[in-house]
């Protein structure tokens, strides 16, 4: 019936509303999705957002969205909207110096894919910034998951580009992945 309202850039000045840790507005969202009673393996995911010159993007916003450690989305709009533990499944981070970002969360469980098979553990990711009129969709997988080999969506990605969306294990429960918006080793983005 009605046409979708077009996207516009988040611009350079979103922080005092969307990621207001340095401003007076109370925060709704966090870079830390864990909390007391939340089941699963606590992990960190860190990296940088880089532009076509390989320069850190210092005014981007990354959002992550995920299943809980059991692969349930009970906390989502498809479930009751609540989980027993208070897990929300959603995190938001602004990039600052060098384009760095960091999340603390739990390793997601496996949720069904479009082919009916279970997907490998992954995060849904959206990226917003000045210089992007429409946000970008990508995903983050984890290199220590055997299920990556059979993941329907990873298998849609040419093999040589898959590492751009598979976070490297850099320590105990610590993962690292840079998001390269453009250029060599450009991150795989999706039309979602």
């Amino acid at each position: 019936m009605s046409g979708v309202t077009p996207s516009q850039t988040v611009g350079p000045y979103f922080a005092y509303a969307l990621t207001p840790s340095r401003y007076p507005l109370h925060e709704i969202f966090s870079t830390d999705l864990t909390g007391p009673g939340i089941e699963g393996t606590k992990i960190t995911l860190t990296g940088r957002v880089l532009d076509g010159d390989g320069v850190g993007v210092t005014d981007a916003m990354i959002e992550i969205w995920q299943a809980d450690a059991k692969g349930s989305l009970e906390h989502s709009t498809l479930g009751s909207g609540k989980s027993n533990s208070g897990f929300k499944g959603f995190g938001r981070c602004e990039t600052l110096a060098e384009g760095a970002y960091a999340f603390t969360t739990v390793k997601p469980g496996r949720v069904p894919g479009a082919d009916g098979k279970l997907q490998a553990p992954h995060l849904g990711v959206t990226l917003f910034s000045r210089g992007m009129l429409t946000h970008l969709f990508t995903r983050v997988y984890f290199e220590d998951e055997a299920a990556n080999a059979e993941d329907q969506i990873l298998n849609l990605v040419p093999a040589e580009r898959r590492p751009t969306i598979i976070a490297k294990k850099v320590g105990d429960n610590a993962y690292q992945l840079d998001i390269r918006i453009q250029g060599g080793d450009e991150t795989v983005f999706f039309h979602a």
Partner: peptide, 12 residues
């Protein structure tokens, strides 16, 4: 991207 439960759901 084929839409899976990850995309079809959202935070509350």
């Amino acid at each position: 991207l084929p839409h899976t439960m990850t995309e079809l759901s959202g935070p509350v």
